[in-house]
Nucleic acid binder design. Structure first.
Length: 606
DNA sequence: GGCTGCGAGACTCG
DNA sequence: TCACGAGTCTCGCAGCC
């Protein structure tokens, strides 16, 4: 039964008569971002009883929240939520920070049950509960005090409750219960932290960078229009006074194709539509032409401005920090994704145009940033997944895996002992075979994790397909267990229509598609990597709780990297502890080495 | 003529 | 057919008022 509660008296009476020690919980808010959101109301459900507490423009909002705070810290022992980090973030925002760690996120549960499906609450209610398709439209349009809105809010909690009963059974059936309860649920708190924390922006440096990049863009733009004989004028913006190039011609792909043709330039690379490609591949192929070289640089600075520099203000909160969203269920492999803004694709310094975007992220006064990176993470996990002794031992003895691959593929005849990074002649050899090592790394070691073919290697390196195939054969001769692991993975996929990572995470794929076999093997590594970083974050979070004096915060994750902020004076004490915690986050046959960088800005810490 | 939604193509990252 | 996983921007086109 649905009950709507408006006053403190009603709330107190309602909860005194019922047992809500285990319940589903959902919040309604005015906004999604932590800094701007305000609570409108919240609903609780135990299946039998469901209520909505209306807090919108409620005179008793404060005392009701105080009562809820008491309820959360003393009575509620287990909480079920759909997209738990969001509701926990709302609790935090209204000052409720003491609540149970025993949580169940139905969204993440469903992602483990079927990573390919839609995880929206309404969609799941239709699919699993037989609820008829309901369309509340934008319920908030009806007003936060309408019956439609109350019903909508109650249903969210009720459906979440019913779904958790179904999903809980399935998690055990699929054997992912430990992954869910011991890794995924603690990790929800890490996501909550990251979305609350955000990262500080240095507004002055951002503005300097913007000015410099704009000036460079305008300079390159003028040159391009002049070379292509396109008419333009330079005008000043009415409000900012900044100079801009104005022309009825735009440097779109079509225009660029036409300019290429007029200059007699032809690219062998075509788009799917059969047109001449104007992408990086083409520009590198046509390198040497004045227009092409200028365009190459223009594209870099244009991308930097339009996708990054100019977008930062849109995401900047009043306290000078940027808070991104992190999606735990957005990828099929288990990786986390980030948006608004995406903190996982911030540009590195491009040697062609050295703008340092990462320098705009900084630590606040008295604090410093730490970037902790798993070095050679995927290759180490490949060795573990394939149980390839040669590669495992190589890592254990600090050998250079890229030089080893080069040695096998090109038959360099280097003694194993000399490929140890500690050997006195190692650096000399690394330098001597720089080119071969580069190919070993970028054409064999990494591409093989992606399931590349001779055709792929040939296309990327320029060698013939036959040569590439010989290289691949030699690679697999050197690491025979990798080949058998790939075969085992393919056989399993053929029989079961899914594969399982070491953490028992699943990926369902169609064995009738050729691509599936590459995706399956890559998943074993990428999926494991995603759970390793989860475990690392969970353990580091515990470490930070044990040391409140550090005032340490987890800011964001970039797949194999965690970025922290910490009080300056504790960096030396904390660093070895963070390193140890991350390297031993999972019980693996190989230590996952971590490299730490420290700096006032993200750029320095990298 | 102007607005909106969508897909293609391009770029960013691990 | 041919290298895994993401997010976001701009452009051009189709459809609508």
């Amino acid at each position: 039964m649905n009950t709507v509660l408006h006053t403190l008296k009603e709330v107190k009476e309602y909860f005194s008569k019922r047992d809500f020690s285990t319940c589903a919980f959902d919040t309604e808010t005015t906004d999604l971002g932590y800094y701007k959101l305000d609570i409108v109301g919240c609903s609780f459900s135990t299946g039998e009883a469901t209520c909505y507490i209306d807090l919108w423009q409620n005179e008793e909002k404060e005392p009701i929240i105080l009562f809820l705070s008491y309820l959360f810290s003393t009575h509620i022992k287990s909480l079920v939520m759909h997209n738990a980090p969001f509701d926990m973030k709302v609790l935090h925002k209204i000052g409720i920070t003491d609540f149970t760690r025993n949580i169940f996120c139905t969204m993440t549960a469903h992602h483990l049950i079927n990573e390919n499906a839609n995880h929206g609450l309404k969609n799941l209610a239709c699919k699993y509960l037989g609820v008829e398709t309901v369309d509340y439209g934008n319920a908030s349009i009806c007003g936060y005090k309408s019956d439609t809105f109350y019903e909508y809010a109650c249903n969210d909690a009720k459906w979440t409750w019913e779904l958790h009963k179904i999903f809980n059974k399935k998690l055990f059936e699929f054997g992912v219960n430990r992954l869910f309860f011991e890794v995924e649920m603690p990790f929800q708190f890490v996501i909550m932290d990251m979305e609350i924390n955000g990262i500080k922006i240095n507004a002055y440096r951002l503005e300097e960078l913007r000015k410099a990049a704009r000036a460079k863009k305008l300079f390159l733009e003028r040159k391009l229009y002049e070379i292509a004989h396109l008419p333009y004028s330079i005008q000043c913006d009415m409000f900012t006074g900044e100079a801009e190039l104005v022309s009825k011609y735009k440097l779109s792909n079509n225009t660029i194709s036409d300019i290429f043709e007029s200059r007699g330039l032809k690219s062998p690379y075509l788009t799917e539509g059969g047109k001449m490609s104007t992408g990086k591949e083409t520009l590198l192929y046509l390198k040497g032409d004045e227009f092409v070289d200028m365009l190459y640089k223009y594209n870099i600075v244009n991308k930097l401005l339009s996708s990054f520099v100019d977008k930062v203000p849109n995401h900047l909160d009043a306290d000078g920090r940027v808070r991104a969203s992190f999606n735990n269920t957005g990828t099929t492999t288990g990786r986390l994704s980030s948006s608004n803004p995406n903190m996982q694709n911030n540009p590195k310094i491009n040697p062609e145009l050295p703008f340092d975007f990462k320098s705009i992220f900084e630590a606040p006064e008295g604090k410093t940033l730490i970037s902790a990176d798993y070095c050679g993470q995927e290759l180490r996990l490949l060795a573990i997944v394939a149980n390839e002794d040669i590669l495992l031992n190589a890592f254990r003895e600090n050998m250079d895996p890229h030089l080893m691959t080069a040695n096998s593929v090109f038959g360099l005849g280097i003694e194993p002992e000399m490929m140890k990074t500690t050997h006195p002649q190692y650096n000399e050899l690394k330098d001597k075979y720089k080119h071969e090592r580069h190919i070993g790394k970028n054409s064999y070691n990494f591409p093989i994790i992606y399931g590349t073919t001779a055709y792929g290697i040939s296309k990327n390196t320029g060698i013939t397909e036959e040569e590439a195939q010989k290289g691949i054969d030699k690679f697999f001769q050197a690491y025979p267990r990798i080949l058998s692991a790939m075969k085992k993975c393919s056989d399993f996929l053929k029989q079961n229509w899914h594969v399982k990572s070491l953490t028992r995470r699943r990926r369902r794929l169609d064995p009738n598609e050729k691509k599936s076999y590459r995706q399956a093997f890559n998943f074993l590594i990428q999926g494991l990597a995603s759970d390793l970083i989860r475990c690392a974050c969970n353990n580091v979070r515990k470490l930070f709780e044990e040391h409140p004096e550090w005032e340490a915060k987890i800011l964001f994750i970039v797949h194999d990297e965690i970025v922290f902020e910490i009080k300056e004076e504790y960096v030396d004490i904390a660093n070895p502890m963070i390193k140890e915690t991350m390297e031993t986050a999972m019980n693996l046959p190989l230590r996952m080495e971590v490299e730490l960088g420290v700096g006032k800005t993200y750029s320095e810490a990298k």
